[in-house]
Amino acid sequence: MPGFALRSVYAAILLSAVLSLHSVSAAGPEPYDPWPGLVQDIFDSRAMDDGSNLIALEMPTRAEDAAIVPVTLRLKLTSDARSRVVSITLVIDQNPAPMAAKFKLGADANVSEISTRVRINNYTNVHAVAETSDGKLHVVQTYVKASGGCSAPAAKNAEEAKNRLGQMRYRQFARPQNEGSSSTREAQVMVGHPNNSGLQMDQVSQLYIPALYVDRLQLWQDDSPVLSVEGGISISEDPNIRFTYVSNGAKTFRAEAKDTDGHQFSHEWKVDGSGM
């Protein structure tokens, strides 16, 4: 009899624990902070210092469209800095795949700005971690509210996305005349690709829709690397990257992309030497 009473007390405790756990995960604004774990997993627990003198991370305070949230990374590095930024890793803490992208900056390209678009699944911190050539890590962060309404981090027009698979576009933008040196260029590369996350189950077949996304994009001016991107499913459909770099006088611009099915896409364009 006492044993029975004890059991029911345990059961009550367990039940209340389950209930409180449920309500925390369900209704709590931030169930837990995944960042310490992400530092361990992605950055091998390396020390990071405040990167706000080095880079700026710009995002809207609210994800208007959950599937297409603009992100801009701006380098503040002045020319007298001793060490240059070699890579920037973008982490969306609360996304199913938090590591959104790692940008490696070409040694001679002087990339000063990178914009892309990401999916935002939830209210989340977003971190950008810059690694400098002295091996140090520098972090900045911002907070983005999830989109409201019927917006979802999913395809709007899956058929059209499929039809665009593998198409590539390059565009060079006009620069304001008094901004940067005359060899500074602003350009954009777009890759048509559904970038499927593979996290959703088809309710008819009960099978997971396989993930298919661009995991690498490399950009060159002639044979000199400008930028390479290791991407994941947090990058929006039709990966789109807009960037500012310094021309080495190259006559061509080349992009190569690879997806998780092993498809390779590449394209080469003539560069407008004038800078427009």
């Binding site: 209704a27 604004p29 699944n121 939830n122 019927c150 979802a152 309710q203």
Partner: peptide, 24 residues
């Protein structure tokens, strides 16, 4: 004809996302 697919990729996301504004 495309609704099953739309619900497969968005349904659970909607349920999770609206918990915040609508409540348990």
């Amino acid at each position: 004809v495309r609704l099953p697919q739309a619900l497969a990729v968005r349904g659970q996301y909607y349920v999770d996302a609206f918990r915040r504004s609508m409540g348990d």
